[in-house]
């Protein structure tokens, strides 16, 4: 039962006390600093649009990073508006908005809801992103600035497999070249999104677990922010070693089986 063994090893590694010898956070804080720099450069009371479309399956990987980014934005005086273009993203956005309201951040956020049509909905929202039934001070501020995506100083795209920052770059940026985009994505999207960071189409990107943990560690933790527990380093190390052992064993068995055929 290798699967059960893996679960037991991960459980044991999770229970062991954290050690400074094993660090998951990337010591190269360039990516983390880029996002912190963008957030620190926001004007007071900036309106930030959060395009919230993570997958249900992979959100657990970026949850701590996303919450750190939301805390960071609010600590810098930003007001946040959440919009989703995928059904899964909407479900998670509703849960996060509920959590933020319980944490007393309700006055600083607006729920712009779900926009159907995926990329077509994204394009439609460039001109009008505030639904008629959206209420609150933040929604009114967006309406006062025209109600379009141009009203926002920054867009934070929380990416998933169905709709990632790539869709925003391809469909929104050509229509709104002045828009400032930053993204948080699960690790598997790193190869897809990294070129946009190098070309300057994305101003910051956290798309690996190590960069996400480095960022979450860099953002000061509020007393109320007990929900921001990053992935632990020790179980990740144990899991990676186990996976490497399994892969190595499989490769060795394959080589051993192939050797007689080659010799023959």
């Amino acid at each position: 039962m290798p699967s059960l063994g893996l679960l037991l090893v991960l459980a044991l590694a999770s229970l062991l006390p954290a050690s400074d010898a094993v660090q998951l956070a990337n010591p190269d804080a360039t990516r983390s600093d880029e996002l912190r720099g963008v957030v620190a450069g926001l004007p007071p009371n900036a309106l930030v649009l959060v395009g919230f479309d993570p997958d249900l399956g992979t959100y657990g990987e970026i949850r701590a990073t996303v919450r750190a980014a939301l805390d960071d934005l609010i600590a810098h005086g930003a007001r946040l508006a959440f919009v989703s273009f995928t059904p899964e993203g909407r479900a998670l956005a509703a849960a996060e908005l509920d959590r933020m309201r319980r944490a007393g951040q309700g006055a600083l956020i607006a729920d712009l809801g779900f926009v159907a049509g995926s990329e077509a909905g994204l394009v439609r929202s460039v001109a009008d992103v505030v639904p008629a039934d959206a209420v609150g001070a933040v929604a009114d501020s967006i309406r006062a600035r025209g109600g379009a995506m141009g009203a926002f100083t920054l867009v934070l795209v929380v990416s998933g497999g169905d709709l990632s920052a790539r869709s925003w770059i391809e469909q929104v940026r050509p229509r709104l070249p002045s828009i400032s985009l930053v993204a948080i994505a699960p690790t598997f999207l790193e190869p897809e999104l990294a070129p946009y960071l190098r070309s300057g189409q994305l101003h910051a990107l956290l798309a690996t677990l190590r960069d996400g943990v480095a960022y979450a560690n860099a953002v000061p933790v509020d007393q109320s922010a007990v929900t921001r527990r990053p992935i632990s380093a020790l179980p990740m190390l144990a899991g990676m070693l186990l996976a490497l052992t399994l892969m190595g064993g499989s490769a060795l068995r394959r080589l051993a089986r192939g050797a007689p055929r080659g010799a023959g």
């Binding site: 893996l6 679960l7 991960l10 459980a11 999770s14 229970l15 399956g57 992979t58 657990g60 990987e61 949850r63 699960p186 690790t187 598997f188 790193e190 190869p191 690996t208 677990l209 527990r229 992935i231 632990s232 179980p235 990740m236 899991g239 990676m240 996976a243």
Partner: peptide, 18 residues
């Protein structure tokens, strides 16, 4: 990248239980 991603999800679930 995919392996790291999926492993982190498993670690997160274990942490949820514990």
């Amino acid at each position: 990248f995919l392996l790291v991603s999926r492993l982190s999800l498993l670690v997160d679930r274990v942490a949820f239980l514990l």
